[in-house]
């Protein structure tokens, strides 16, 4: 009786330990992803350091599904830079090139006009009603780096949520069932 009890006890303790290890490794994956993201936010100074290109308005330079790395510094904005900006009343930020800059004499405030390389006209039609210029506070960052295709993963996952749940489920199962 004592021997059997010992055996059951040892199996139980193994399972508890294994369960704990799995929970911790799952937690490690989630937190390290969070650390990388927040770390990038600190280094780049932009609230979203990586963006995925969603439209073809900057083709052939940037295609849908490409990834851009953003940087937000105190440096003044100049013509030719590719900036990511938010328009009041629009949820999705836009990535376009600056074609006009007017910088104030005393305050250093800027009026900026943007245009997509692949668009015929400038962006005044995209701006809020009656808005002629972008100001500093609309701009989330300027694009400094480029990586092709990688963004397709997120595009597919946002457009086909089933794939996202399948993927998360499969990954979770893998983490839980894998031994060492």
């Amino acid at each position: 009786m004592g021997w059997i009890g010992d055996q059951i006890e040892s199996i139980r303790s193994i399972q508890v330990r294994q369960l704990l290890t799995q929970a911790i490794s799952l937690g490690m994956i989630v937190t390290s992803a969070l650390i990388i993201w927040k770390g990038l936010m600190c280094v780049t100074g932009s609230e979203s350091p990586v963006v995925v290109v969603l439209s073809g308005s900057m083709e052939p330079g940037f295609k849908r599904g490409d990834i851009l790395f953003l940087h937000m510094s105190k440096d003044p904005i100049r013509a030719g830079e590719i900036v990511v900006f938010n328009i009041d009343g629009r949820e999705i930020p836009i990535v376009h090139r600056v074609i006009k800059v007017h910088e104030r004499q005393e305050t250093g405030e800027v009026d900026v006009l943007t245009k997509g390389d692949n668009n015929y006209g400038d962006d005044r039609l995209l701006y809020a009603q009656g808005q002629l210029w972008l100001q500093r506070h609309h701009i989330m960052g300027r694009a400094v780096g480029f990586l092709p295709y990688v963004g397709w993963v997120t595009i597919i996952m946002t457009e086909k949520p089933i794939i996202k749940y399948l993927l998360i489920g499969a990954l979770g199962l893998l983490v839980i069932t894998s031994k060492e």
């Binding site: 330079g61 074609i99 006009k100 800059v101 007017h102 910088e103 104030r104 004499q105």
Partner: peptide
């Protein structure tokens, strides 16, 4: 200009493939 310390206006652009 008296109002602006810098005016930068794109006149023409081109993509070299």
């Amino acid at each position: 200009t008296p109002k602006n310390s810098l005016n930068q206006i794109s006149l023409w652009d081109h993509i070299i493939p």
